[in-house]
Amino acid sequence: MSTDPWDLLDAASTVVAFHAHPDDEALATGALLTALTARGTRVILVTATRGEEGEIVPGTVADGEQQPLEEIREGEIAAATAALGIAERHWLGTAPALAPDAAPRRYRDSGMQWVRPGLAGPADTAGEDSFTHRPLDDAAADLAALLQSVQPDVLLSYDDEGTYGHPDHVRAHLVARAASELTDVPFVQVASDPQAAQEVREHPGTAEAVHRALSAYRTQLTVVDPAPASDPAPESIPIRHVGGQDDAVPLATGLRPLETSA
């Protein structure tokens, strides 16, 4: 079997994508997941937390709103995944992404703080029920249960840099790696730095779907352009994060080479 990550994805009929929070699937892998679903690949999304610690874009939640942020973000992820063509999604710790004989458990958003521009680090407020503080073995067993249930060809998640160092992203990498080892499902890593990628591929024709998915996350970000450009085809979707930072979500993906044991 090839260990080239793109060969594995090209041959896959079922892919499990594992992300830390609602919106990560669109920000980190939106174009890739759209391309996979468009060609008929079965994509199953597993999300570790409900993003309870996320900041809120001013004006997107009415004053006096009683609905908890996690419920709002559950609605956002439902709309976003529909836009990407993903029909199956689960929360880590809820069956079928739950270890056999284990009681259902929720992994709470660990939060983060900026260490320097572009690099996040752990927050001081993460509690015992946070994703980064709960036992790694529990989370790995929960993800492994889902993998054993659906028998995917590939498990897709972050590399060890966690895109920008968010502690939940780094934890997701460790959980995915452990679950891969438990089940022998190949682990394909999305490169945080394109320079570290084995190959970067563009995903033409995905701009509209990614634009709609990102637009669903009104509490977390703002899509700068009201509609995606069609001529010429865009290379990215410009956004503004909740903290006011301008960014561009690329319509291309770099994958890291698979790690193999000696």
Results as ranks from 00 to 15, higher is better:
P122H: 08
Q67S: 09
Q151G: 00
T132N: 07
A179S: 11
R108Y: 15
F131K: 00
A123D: 15
D138I: 09
R106H: 12
A103N: 02
D137L: 12
R177H: 13
R105H: 14
E65Y: 01
G121W: 14
V175L: 04
P68G: 06
A79Q: 11
Y107S: 13
V115Q: 13
T125W: 12
P96W: 03
D137F: 08
D159K: 05
A172G: 10
A144D: 02
D160Q: 11
L147D: 02
A80F: 12
W114P: 07
A97I: 01
A99M: 01
E74T: 13
L156Y: 10
L174V: 06
A140K: 01
P135D: 09
G75I: 06
G118H: 03
Q113R: 15
H173Y: 14
T94S: 09
D137G: 12
D101C: 01
P167M: 04
P96A: 02
S180H: 14
G121H: 11
L136Y: 11
P135A: 13
L119K: 06
G85N: 10
Q148S: 10
S180A: 15
H90D: 05
Q67N: 00
L92A: 05
A141Y: 11
V150Y: 01
P117V: 08
R171I: 08
T94K: 02
D168M: 03
D109N: 04
T94Q: 13
A172F: 01
A178W: 04
P100E: 00
A97V: 01
A123R: 12
A178T: 13
G64F: 10
